[in-house]
Simulated assay, not measured.
Amino acid sequence: MSAIDDIVAQLPMSSLAGQVGSDPQTTEAAVRQVLPTLLGGLQANAQDPAGASSLAGALQSHSPDLVDGGVDLGQVDPADGSKIVSNIFGGQTDQVAQTLGGSLGGQTGLVEKLLPLLAPIVLSYLTKRLGGQAQAGQGGDLADVLGGLLGGQGAGAGAGAGGLGGLLGGLLGGSQGGQGGSSSGGLADVLGGLLGGGRR
């Protein structure tokens, strides 16, 4: 099971859809675009020693219990999520939301609601996958873990901007079973450029 499928399986999709004012099918399609974007953004930040250190600290403050046995949305703090999203994407947050929303047929508002809800869940999931090793996970270690989650076989080790774009392109184009394939290249290009180029 991929990291995206694993996280999706933990989400109460009907409840999440109700919270963001959408239907479960549309919400899940959006979630499957937002999750790899968050993971890719974290990986891009982990390429930089300062970013990796900041990420390691953030992971230590997010309990893996949130994703054990299914996510309780009542335990998700959107304010915390907004800070995480801002740390990942900086001034490009709106552009990321617009790009993702466009690939979903004009669902920018839905993406903007999902980003702060899913960000804490992603960090808790990574904490669980790291098994408490986040403190030791500096630079390459964290980037390798994130690259493995994105590429499946650790393809992200040492990847720069181009590598990130390739990983996201492969993930969004390959794991969607053709769904949204026409837009995956543009999304990968935007994220590869703004995250890799702006965060080194």
Rank of each mutant, 00 (worst) to 15 (best):
A9P: 02
L104I: 09
L168I: 07
L100C: 10
G139I: 08
D144A: 15
L59N: 07
D189V: 12
G151L: 02
A159V: 05
S183A: 15
L110G: 04
H62S: 10
L39A: 07
G163F: 05
G151H: 12
L168F: 05
L118R: 07
T127H: 08
T37E: 00
L195N: 03
T26F: 05
D5A: 15
G163R: 08
A79R: 01
L126H: 05
T127R: 02
L194G: 05
P12Y: 15
G148H: 14
G40M: 02
Q47C: 00
S103A: 14
G197I: 08
S82K: 07
S183G: 04
L73Y: 03
S183M: 12
Q33A: 08
S103F: 02
H62F: 05
L11A: 03
L38N: 09
L100R: 07
G178K: 03
P78F: 04
L38W: 02
A97V: 05
Q179T: 15
G156M: 06
S22Y: 03
Q179R: 15
P116G: 11
S175N: 05
V34H: 06
L11I: 11
G148Q: 10
S82W: 00
A52I: 03
L191G: 06
G170N: 11
V85D: 04
P12V: 09
Q60G: 09
